[in-house]
Write a protein that binds this DNA or RNA. Structure first.
Length: 135
RNA sequence: CUACAAACCCGAACUAUCGCUCCGUACUUGUAUGGUGAGGAAAGUCUGGACAGCAAAGGGCAACCCACCGGUGAACAGCCGGAUGUUUCAGUAACAUGAAAUAAUAGAUAGUGCCACAGAAAAUAACUGCCGGCAACGGCGAUGGUGAAAACGUGGGGUAAAAGCCCACGAUGCUUUGCAGUAAUGCAUUGCAUGGGUAAACCUUGGGUGCUGUAAUGCCACGUAUAGUACCGUUUUAAGAGCGGCCCGUUCAAGGUACAGGGUAGGCAGCAACAUUGUGUAAGUAAUUGCACAGGCAGAUAAAUGAUAGUUUAGAAACAGAAUCCGGCUUACGAGGUUUGUAGUACA
RNA sequence: CGGGAUGUAGCGCAGCCCGGUAGCGCACACGUCUGGGGGGCGUGGGGUCGCAAGUUCAAAUCUUGUCAUCCCGA
C-alpha cells in the first residue's frame, strides 16, 4: 500500500471491459444518496482496488455540476478509504467498486463525508459475508 | 447627489497541510524533487475557414444560401465607414432641420396568386350616375364616403357632360446632359409616363455552395468460425459498388445483400508554435494593418484545478468547465468602476 | 460531435402549408329528466397560442433570434 490519502491514476477504474463486467455481473447496495456496484475480479489487477465515481447526466444537466459532484465524491473516498485498504491488505483480496450519485440536488461536501465511511464499512462487511459463505 | 436603463472594463491575491493531470531530472522503477494547469463567455452550435478523407472529389437538374456602395480580412451571413428609405423623439403654423434605432435595401414596368369585414367596385374597369339622342346607340369616368388601401394632389381654364384634355405649382417612376463623388448616390436639367399593396406568397434576375467530419484519417498489436441460413449474381446483354436526392457520363467489379452468431473495444501518430499573446510605436475617420521588444500560455480519454484553516480588502459571492484548432455572431452573469441617456431632489 | 421534432383552455390534441372567425374530446359550473345516485340532454365559463423583435392594413399562422422539453445517429 502506497500513501495514506492518495487517489492516483492506477487506482481509478478505467477499463471499459472491466466496467461492463461490473455493471453486468456485480452486486449492488444503496445508502442514500449513493448506490454502490462492487465485485471481486478473477484476473490479477495491477492495484488491489479499482474505484470509480459517476453521476447521471439526466439529473445534472450542466457539466460544471457533474464535475462538482464527482470531485466531492473523490475527495471523500480519498480521505476515508483506509478502512477498505486495511481489510484488503489483511486478507489479500482485490475488489472493483463504482459509486453512483443518485440524488437530484447538488450535495454539500459534509453530507458525503459523513456517508462515505458508512458505505465503506458496509462494503467490508459484505465482502466478509461472501468470504464466510464460500468457506 | 440618488434611482433606473444601455455600452465598455474587470472576472480576487497570498500562505500552510493533504491530493490530482501533464512535462523535465535523479535513482533503488515507484518514489523523491522542480515546473505546469480552464473562460469571457470554455456555453448555444448560428456561421466563415484551416486540416483530413471520399472513384478523376466529372456534367446537368433539383435543393440551399446571399442580394445598396466602398473598405477590411485566410474567409464570412461578421466587422468598419458611407448612401438612400422607414419608425420614434425633439423641432416648425406646416415644411425644413437634428438625434437615435433599423433584417430596411435587386425586380411589383416579366408572369401567376392573394387582399377578411365594409363598400357599387380591391384591379376586368362593370354597376349607379351625368350628357347628346324619339330610340337603337354613342361620349364620360366628375357623382357613390366604405375601407389599411379607390385610378397622381391642389387651384384654374375648358365642355353638351367630363377628363392631365390644357395651364400653374407640386409628387412619383424611368430617361438625356452637366457638375460633385472610387461608388451607391446627390444637385441642376431634357423628354416621356402616372390603375394600390404584398416578393419575411410563388417566382424572375445576378452571384455562390461537391459531400462527410478529428469517433476524420494513417500505422502497430491482439483475437474469432478455411463459419451457418436465405436471396441476387459470376465467361454475355454482368448482380453490385465507387458517401446526401434524381438523370447522364465514367471507373472498379466476382462476389454482393439480409438474418443469426463469434471476436475486439488496447497502443502510437493526428495533439498543442502560431491567420499566436502582451506592451510600445507608426499608418488609417474606423474595422484593421506594418514594425520593434518581451513571453511560451491546458492537453485528458470514466476524462486532471479539489478539501480544510488563516491573512489582505467593504465583500468573495454571479454565469459557468477545454476535448482538433482559429475568426465572428448570439445568449447567461455578481460586486465595483467609467461613459451616455432619462427622472427626481438641493444649491448658485 | 452531428441530426431532427414539439411548445395552443386544467389534461390530450386540431387549426399553421395557402395570414383576417381560435375549435374538438375529457374535465368544470348551471339548468333539466330521476324519489336519490349514475347516466343522458341543453346552456355557459375558461386560452399572454413558450418568450422577444420584425414584415404586413392585419400574425397562433410568414421571417429571425431565443428558452424549454423530447427523440435519433456515430
Amino acid at each position: 500500500m502506497a500513501k495514506m490519502f492518495s487517489y492516483s491514476k492506477a487506482e481509478k477504474l478505467k477499463s471499459r471491459k472491466l466496467m461492463d463486467q461490473l455493471f453486468r455481473e456485480g452486486k449492488t447496495f444503496s445508502i442514500f444518496p449513493l448506490k454502490v456496484f462492487y465485485m471481486q475480479p478473477t484476473a490479477i489487477l495491477d492495484f488491489p482496488v479499482k474505484a470509480g465515481v459517476g453521476v447521471s447526466s439526466r439529473n445534472f444537466k450542466k457539466a460544471i455540476h457533474r464535475n462538482r459532484v464527482k470531485r466531492i465524491m473523490r475527495e471523500a473516498y480519498r480521505t476515508e478509504k483506509n478502512v477498505l485498504h486495511d481489510y484488503l491488505n489483511l486478507h489479500q483480496k482485490q475488489v472493483v467498486v463504482f459509486m453512483l450519485y443518485i440524488d437530484k440536488i447538488l450535495p454539500e461536501y459534509e453530507t458525503i463525508k459523513t456517508v462515505m465511511p458508512v458505505v465503506l464499512q458496509r462494503l467490508v462487511k459484505k465482502l466478509n459475508e461472501t468470504a464466510a459463505a464460500n468457506t
